[in-house]
Design a protein around this nucleic acid. Structure first.
Lengths: 185, 185
DNA sequence: AGCGCTATTTATAAAAG
DNA sequence: TCTTTTATAAATAGCGC
């Protein structure tokens, strides 16, 4: 998409990143080439501060999304610009409320009363069930088996064999039906 | 401090970033040069997932701190590892509670009282997920297959075959380890 | 679990539109 | 204010300890 212009300059080999041994002509005679390091302290210029906020806010939300996907982590992020505008992110399959609830449980800090403990408890229970199935599924698919003992592997193997057997029977039924159908026509 | 070795390869002018047209001698005969892009999807290898989580978690908390300082923003971040360990950040001069209060005011979402809805919605969602996994599990175990089409059966078959293949590899590892152990004793 | 190393990939500060 | 561009600064994947 970028692939800017590059009016037919010629060969333009595959090299990239020609640093700038000689400044390849300043775009304008004028001054600033800049980009550069900044120290981590409040940006005084309000405009710059706003721009930087916008960029970094996007950056953080993106990072949050990435870690939640990559590492299967639960993440909640809430950001207010200095102007008071709100931005937030919450990992999929959960909610800020849920994360905060967990936060309370885990940190001991109480963010709100405990009216919803029971609902929460049910969610925990179901999620646990969920996790167990997830694990079983993974195992049947041959994933995450490093922690398994030989005995457990054998049980999985039996399950898989049984599955295949049943499945083949079923496939045979389909096959027979097909053959029968063809013969009759 | 770093300034590693670089045994006198020669002139080594000020250029950096010599990619690696020819690998300038591998340190050891051994293999891995690696580093590289990864796609944003769950990291299957548990160990890598944990390491990446740790690194990126630090990264996000750092970014949160930076934006809060640079841009005078209020930021709250809560992260749970997949193992359930909690990490969090909150900008200075405030607290998570205060940020959340502001969040409610600003977003209209009421985290506490309206939590019922989100909780029950979540329960519904999880239960549905649960059901789907249940079905998939049954299928892999060769149950409830009457409603499946041949094509679907084939997909299941492939899954089972893949599972068996992976599993046999794993069993082979156990076996090899056992043999090795016996021989050594 | 964490730190150091380095090649690469990303994020971004500045500038200009 | 948001976007695109470009040169730099940072983050980080895969190793090794």
């Amino acid at each position: 998409i970028p692939q800017s212009h590059h009016a037919g300059t010629g060969p333009q080999s595959a090299r990239r990143n020609q640093p700038f041994l000689t400044p390849p002509e300043e775009e304008e005679g004028g001054g600033g080439m800049g980009r550069g390091k900044i120290e981590i302290k409040r940006i005084e210029n309000q405009s710059n501060r706003q721009v930087t906020f916008s960029k970094r806010k996007n950056g953080i939300l993106k990072k949050a999304k990435e870690i939640s996907v990559l590492c299967d982590a639960e993440v909640g992020v809430v950001v207010f610009s200095s102007a008071g505008k709100l931005y937030d992110f919450c990992s999929p399959r959960t909610s800020l409320s849920r994360i905060l609830e967990k936060y309370q449980t885990n940190s001991g800090k109480i963010l709100w009363d405990e009216k919803h403990k029971s609902l929460s408890a049910e969610i925990d229970r179901i999620k646990k069930e969920n996790d167990n199935m997830q694990i079983e599924l993974r195992h049947l698919k041959g994933e995450d088996m490093n922690s398994l003992q030989p005995k457990e592997l054998i049980m999985i193997e039996e399950a898989l064999d049984n599955g295949l057997t049943s499945l083949h029977e079923k496939q045979m039924e389909h096959y027979d039906r097909l053959v029968k159908h063809v013969c009759m026509s």
